[in-house]
């Protein structure tokens, strides 16, 4: 015989009691703190206290500024050397045991990476300050207003 709805609700009554007790445990300290603050901790807001910056200096300008995002190009160029190191190191370890075919294929690999670097170099990517005539990559970047 299945329990009637009344029996189910009475079975779960302690759970309800626990839930209420838990809510009270959470809310009472908050409420007591608020009560204490009302009598013994008068709020004194002010221009300095409500300022966002907290290093002692005044913030100036706007957070919504354009900044040069050119660094990602350096990160991509770094990948060339990264991949090179990953393949060259195991190659060097077993270098004496390899034939001429392996040596040539690795030279081709190096040549491809070097060609990529050379291409980026000629594009003017390695020039941080930027050569406007050659840096076709950064046409949209150099169009931005300069920083302070």
């Amino acid at each position: 015989m299945s329990p009637t709805p009344a029996e189910v609700s009475s079975n779960y009554l302690p759970v309800l009691g626990l839930a209420v007790a838990a809510a009270l445990c959470a809310c009472t300290p908050l409420w007591l703190g608020r009560l204490w603050a009302r009598y013994f901790s008068p709020g004194k807001p002010g221009a300095d206290k409500l300022a966002t910056y907290e290093c002692g200096l005044e913030s100036k300008g706007d957070a919504w500024i354009h900044f040069k995002s050119g660094y990602y190009l350096y990160a991509i160029i770094f990948l060339i050397f990264d991949v090179e190191a990953v393949f060259l190191l195991p190659f060097a370890v077993i270098f004496t045991g390899l034939g001429a075919g392996a040596f040539v294929s690795l030279l081709v690999f190096l040549l491809l990476l070097a060609a990529g670097l050379l291409w980026a170099w000629r594009k003017g990517i390695l020039n941080w300050a930027g050569d406007p005539a050659r840096a076709s990559f950064r046409g949209e970047l150099s169009a931005l207003p300069p920083l302070d």
């Binding site: 901790s41 004194k44 002010g46 300095d48 206290k49 300022a51 907290e54 290093c55 002692g56 005044e58």
Partner: peptide, 12 residues
């Protein structure tokens, strides 16, 4: 000025 401003930013 920075010291005074930091003092102002501290909570009572």
């Amino acid at each position: 000025p920075q010291v005074v401003r930091l003092y102002n930013q501290m909570a009572e």
